[in-house]
Design a protein around this nucleic acid. Structure first.
Lengths: 216, 216, 216, 216
DNA sequence: AATGAATGAGCCTTCATTCAT
DNA sequence: CATGAATGAAGGCTCATTCAT
């Protein structure tokens, strides 16, 4: 009837499972996992589809293209990360040194030791290729943690518990061990690079830094 | 046709002629630059060839394939980094607190503030895809810095200048601000993320951490 | 809650409800429109479904596949075209020159100036990919118009009104302006290609051609 | 060394033949052939590459993408077509009726009966999808033929050989049989649609139309 | 009957790799 | 040594087709 090669489509084979409402979230979760593990360019949509238990074409029912999926996955990762950051221990009743120590430890248990920890390394890796995403991550997460720490320090100074230091700079410094420990573990693996256990690391970090912060 | 003397007088002309001996090094430099900026998968050999002022085929005269070029570029970046690390200030004569402060500042001026700073971020980004390279970088660089710091601390403890802390763990903690500051600047840019100037940052970092280390 | 009578009074509402019997025809109409506008390969079933106000899957309730839909759309277009051709002015009473002129003008008003005009161009475009359809169109439409013209000429010759020419060849020649005008307008647009208005074009065409046909 | 699936390229196999200077023209010729036969959307770059004796990737060394190749192929087809049109018989010495007849016949031998004849049908088919190309074709070819015919008619009128008719409209009408015969043959095939031989067709067409044009 | 989510083959496009010059 | 034309495998994306609901 028709010319050769103009029409020649073969039908699907296996039965599809339908969960339209959950699909986007499942896809985003799978996407974030693969992106975080391989990076943007090395990730094939096939991998994501496979991980999500879905065919490649399904992705395009929910996302315009690879980049849109990436950005959405970042967003889907940032949201709970923001929540986790906001939930970090900030008990105002306790003295400042205790609060700082608790903040560090709760950072680890609520973020560092969870799947949320994949995001920071991903954004460090893709920061150059996706400046918008990097900026966004910085504004939403890094800045937020830093501000929480800075407020904690300011309160401590106001209460006379801490020395008068520049709060935003000190906050960066307090944040550095938290960030570095997480990135190291994500990049090199806990054991491969002989990272001390988190309790020991954050315990000593708090000891050392607080000694400098606390008013004699 | 013309008198021999006439033509033979024409000088060797402006023939600076490329020096094949330097080719590999030029390629590696270009490669490291592009890899560090875009990551492994997003880097095209065309880009590297263009940056090196060479044709794409030339790369294959010196390297077996993209991966070999990548590994060689990493190696070519690690070597001067190791040298820079070894050259970090370790003046044994001065008291320990001064030595630590000097170490931090010389880290910044000799590494953080130089093109060498591109490498750590690249390896954080590609750690998952090239575990061998990551391990290698960790062993050669991270461990080396850490050991230098640990030795410094051990000496300080032995001299009675510093409190008795676990040197390797304390070294990690001291290294964290150095590492974090560098990664932040590479990823988000000095100004975009409102990073304090290095002197202020490392100055306060040394103050705080030393307060915890120094024996009262 | 509310009185039964109140709610039960609400009328059967505005439920004009689709009439499944007309579905296939609506689909064919939509299909022909899109196929004619974009060609077979560039047409997506989505477009057709959208235009028909139906979901994509519905198409498969009535047609085996895209090709079957295409052929059916062609057929659905050919049928009224055949009818229109058969209805073209053939008043045997009038003298042959008048009959020819009337034939041309009624071609334009009954076919050229209606949606039926989309079909010829579509078949010119897809003739190579769908030779069966092309042959079919030619046999049903082109040949029919030609035969009508040829009969008209034969009668005129028999009556002594027209010169003795090969009727089938002369018919082709008379058909050429009709066909060309239609294709030009469909392809380039009436105004974009500065086509003269149909009355002028067909008037002059009839003048010129009849001068050659009519017996001096 | 590297992570699985990050790098896994296999080398080419067969020896490439190098004719860089002739490549673009070969590609354009092959492309025009396939596009004209199947239409834009149904044409696969593989087909073109195969026909040009080249691999698919080679196309992208010379053309940005499928559409650019299409437009370039059109252009490559239009150029010789314009030349052929300009070379159509316009011998001013002979009387106008002879000139018109010669014009028609030379149209057929120089264009209709050559590979150049593929282009008009292609542009009729793709006119809706590529309006720019259609407009271009119309301005370059259709208008040019029409103007040549119109000038011929004007001269004939000025010489008193032809009746006073609107030259541009009459030109369209004279062009119609030429255009229609070509499109019919391209679409339905010479024999399949019982097209009379060109000499007979154009001979009678000239007879009929000239009878209307020539001054009694 | 109708829907629309899901599928997967296929096509355009890229790019690491090769090789004749 | 160096080039750059050529290759072809792979990946992003589309869309005809199916099927559970």
């Amino acid at each position: 009837m028709a010319a050769t090669s103009v029409t020649s489509h073969t039908p699907p084979a296996l039965a599809p499972r339908r969960r339209p409402k959950e699909r986007p979230a499942e896809l985003l979760k799978a996407a974030l996992g693969v992106f975080a593990s391989k990076g943007y360019a090395a990730t094939r949509l096939d991998d994501i589809a496979l991980k999500a238990g879905v065919s490649k074409g399904t992705i395009y029912l929910y996302f315009a293209n690879k980049e849109a999926l990436f950005m959405a996955a970042i967003e889907a990762g940032i949201t709970p990360l923001v929540e986790a950051v906001e939930a970090l221990s900030l008990d105002e009743e306790r003295p400042s040194p205790e609060r700082l120590r608790a903040f560090m430890l709760s950072w680890w248990s609520r973020i560092g030791d969870t799947p949320l920890s994949a995001l920071p390394r991903l954004l460090v890796a893709e920061g150059n290729n996706f400046p918008k995403a990097a900026q966004w991550f910085h504004d939403e997460i890094v800045t937020r943690v830093q501000r929480a720490l800075a407020r904690l320090i300011e309160t401590g100074i106001a209460r006379g518990e801490l020395r008068a230091v520049e709060p935003m700079v000190a906050a960066r410094i307090l944040f550095a061990p938290m960030f570095a420990y997480l990135v190291w573990r994500e990049t090199f693996g806990q054991t491969l690079c002989h990272l001390p256990p988190p309790e020991q690391f954050f315990g000593l970090a708090a000891d050392l830094l607080l000694a400098g912060l606390v008013r004699p």
